[in-house]
């Protein structure tokens, strides 16, 4: 991985949520939703965050878009094509640290470069706006072009995401569209200001099977066309395999394994990844999967002990794991990182 092509850099990112804070009293317990997570996303890359519900993948996505502020850590973006007169804080290598972004204008500029596609297309479109108003909202907010130009761009984008002829969609309301069409509108809206980075949070999990493949293929072709990077958040390993170049597996706020998709799926090294992969049902009744039993269920990461987060459920845990801190991510194979002492 060359540093030259990196678009997003995440270093030791952490976000804690207080549990049951009292009136005028400081919280004493915290959910470690995202706990010291580091990774980089290349330009034009689809980077998958995979894990079960509550593992912190959505929180990570929101932190990257500044919808949430991190408790600790650093997120930096390579922002290009920014206006000359806008002074942005920059690191030595030209990256803009998101955590140091100050001022309304700087934040608004950042919003031109990063967009989001949400899970539920029924909730992510304002029911009181027409499709035209929805997809051109980023242009209006960013004051790009006059209304007629915006409408032209909106129509163009609708065609691009497979809603044509655009005139028959522009003035409709979301409730008049099907789930797949809505998700296409959501994609058009995210794409319209030509962002370089998109966080896609389970964009196909609410859609019907026959619609799903179309949306995934659309996102892939948009990546080819515009060289966009995605942070693709999903719980579905099969979807992650289809979409992503690299994936990171998260467990209780930690990345436990990170590597090229095929390497992680075909040759998982972390015991949690192994269990996760063996649990995926296979659409073929002839395949009998081996049963990999994990103890217990996913606990909530409230004030976790410093040792390996997976210790209590791990089938291969040793005394070494018990007395040492959570293992660091190490490169066990080429570009394939694992956080496990025993792997």
């Amino acid at each position: 991985m060359t540093a030259k092509n990196v678009l997003v850099r995440v270093e030791r990112l952490a976000r804690l949520f207080p549990v049951a804070r009292g009136w005028l009293r400081r919280a004493r317990h915290f959910v470690h939703a995202v706990d010291e997570v580091s990774f980089q996303i290349q330009q034009g890359e689809i980077f998958g965050l995979v894990g079960e519900s509550g593992c912190g993948k959505t929180t990570t996505g929101k932190l990257l878009l500044k919808l949430l502020e991190p408790t600790r850590g650093r997120i930096s973006f390579r922002l290009e094509r920014t206006p000359q007169d806008l002074p942005l804080p920059r690191d030595a290598d030209g990256f803009v640290p998101l955590t140091h972004l100050r001022g309304r204008r700087a934040l608004k500029e950042f919003r031109r470069h990063a967009q989001m596609i949400f899970q539920d297309p029924y909730e992510s479109l304002n029911p009181r706006m027409t499709v035209l108003e929805i997809i051109t909202e980023p242009l209006r907010v960013q004051k790009i072009g006059d209304p007629l130009e915006q409408e032209g761009q909106g129509a163009e984008m609708l065609k691009r995401v497979g809603l044509s002829p655009p005139e028959s969609f522009l003035f409709r309301y979301p409730h008049e569209l099907s789930g797949g069409q809505r998700q296409r509108v959501a994609i058009a809206r995210a794409m319209i200001i030509n962002p370089s980075f998109i966080v896609a949070d389970e964009p196909t999990s609410m859609l019907d099977v026959s619609i799903r493949a179309g949306i995934m293929n659309l996102m892939l072709s948009l990546r080819e066309e515009f060289n966009i990077s995605y942070l693709y958040i999903t719980h579905d390993l099969a979807v992650a395999r289809y979409m992503c170049d690299r994936i990171a597996v998260m467990y209780l706020g930690k990345i436990v394994e990170l590597g090229p998709t095929e390497a992680v799926i075909q040759n998982p090294l972390h015991p949690y990844t192994k269990a996760l992969i063996s649990a995926v049902p296979v659409p073929d009744p002839r395949v009998k999967r081996p049963s990999l039993e994990l103890k217990g269920g996913v606990p909530r990461p409230i004030d976790p002990e410093p040792r390996c987060r997976f210790y209590n459920r791990c089938p291969i845990a040793t005394d070494h794991c018990r007395i040492h801190n959570h293992p660091p991510l190490e490169e066990k194979e080429r570009a394939h990182w694992v956080a496990c002492y025993e792997a």
């Binding site: 099977v209 992969i277 659409p283």
Partner: peptide
């Protein structure tokens, strides 16, 4: 069947 991705 062909709309489902698989991990195998």
């Amino acid at each position: 069947l062909s709309a489902f991705p698989s991990i195998h």
